[in-house]
Amino acid sequence: MTEYEDIRYEEKDHVATITFNRPEKLNAFRGHTYAEVTDAVHRAGWNRDIGVIVLTGAGDRAFAVGGDSTEKKSDRVGHGRGTVGIPVEEMQTAIRDVPKPVIAKVRGYAIGSGNVIVTLCDLAIASETAIFGQAGPKMGSVDPGFGTALLARIVGEKKAREMWFLCRKYPAQEALAMGLINHVVPDADLDDEVDRWCREINDLSPTALAIAKRSFNADSESIRGAGLLGFQALALYFGTEESKEGGTALRAKRNPDFRGAMT
């Protein structure tokens, strides 16, 4: 891809910035968004002139808020790339595998897939306005790989289960305390702070950083295989009335009845 529809791509001072550019939908991801982010991460990650990749969201309301609710899960299964019809695994693999540090720059909501992306990034810096959390079980979905198992390694088993089992929201300072992010600054200072971290990283040896990232990833690489198995199960789940109920209820502006949908 040389041009993008759902994202913006910029290279400057050895930093590639990938901006999720759907602010009217709080930067929700559709299938095309996953494909574009994957392409852009590879484009930056294998460019020897790039030392750091920054992922961020357009506007000040959201980093990203998960899947686009107008895209029905049951319709996408079996279509396009990826086990569940969208290339989630490919995007996650790209963020993990490129030999460059990937930084999440977070303003506003990082919910659902947005929270998973923060989990996957090597570093995360947030403004005081940032809010984190998972929403999958509210919508009949879950991330059965890095979004659960890697999250547990980062914030601890009990906290990760709390995030998924209760679908609560967590302000930036609480996310910092649990270890989900590295640093919190006032919103007006976020861009400058991320630039400062990028400059520090770009003063270091790219090869040493690449080896360090590979070494960190090796410890949790087994999650990839377990996640692929989980996505196969998720593809089957997406075809059930229970999974469909979350999106159906949202579009009908009513509370979901997951138990009723199971019968």
Rank of each mutant, 00 (worst) to 15 (best):
R254A: 15
K25M: 07
R251K: 12
T119A: 11
W197C: 05
G260H: 06
V77S: 04
S215N: 07
G247L: 09
T248W: 02
E36A: 00
V118C: 08
R107C: 02
G51N: 08
N21R: 12
V185I: 09
E221K: 15
S222K: 14
R196H: 13
Q134H: 09
E241V: 08
T93C: 10
C198A: 05
A40I: 05
I201H: 07
D192N: 13
R43Y: 11
K12T: 14
L55F: 11
A218P: 12
C121D: 00
G82E: 02
K25T: 06
I18T: 00
V65Q: 03
A210M: 01
I117G: 00
F216H: 14
A252P: 09
T93P: 15
V155S: 01
S69T: 04
E3I: 10
K73R: 14
A210W: 02
G67S: 02
E174T: 14
L236N: 14
T93F: 11
N27S: 11
G136M: 13
M163K: 00
G230K: 02
I7H: 09
T2Y: 12
T2W: 08
G225T: 11
D191C: 04
G145R: 03
L250Q: 07
L120M: 14
E128I: 11
A160V: 01
C121A: 05
L229S: 09
V106W: 01
V185H: 10
F20A: 02
C167A: 10
D219W: 15
N255F: 13
I154C: 01
V88T: 14
G31P: 03
F258L: 14
P186V: 13
S222I: 15
A172W: 02
K73G: 09
S220Y: 13
A233Y: 12
D68V: 02
E241R: 10
T148G: 10
V52C: 10
E71M: 04
A149Q: 12
I86R: 03
V106H: 01
I125W: 00
I111Q: 03
G133K: 08
A249T: 06
V184W: 00
I211G: 08
N217F: 15
W197R: 04
A210P: 05
T56W: 05
S74P: 02
G179L: 06
E162D: 09
G51M: 00
D191A: 03
G57Q: 06
E162M: 01
L228K: 12
A226F: 10
A58S: 12
H14R: 14
A62L: 13
I211W: 09
G114M: 05
T56Y: 04
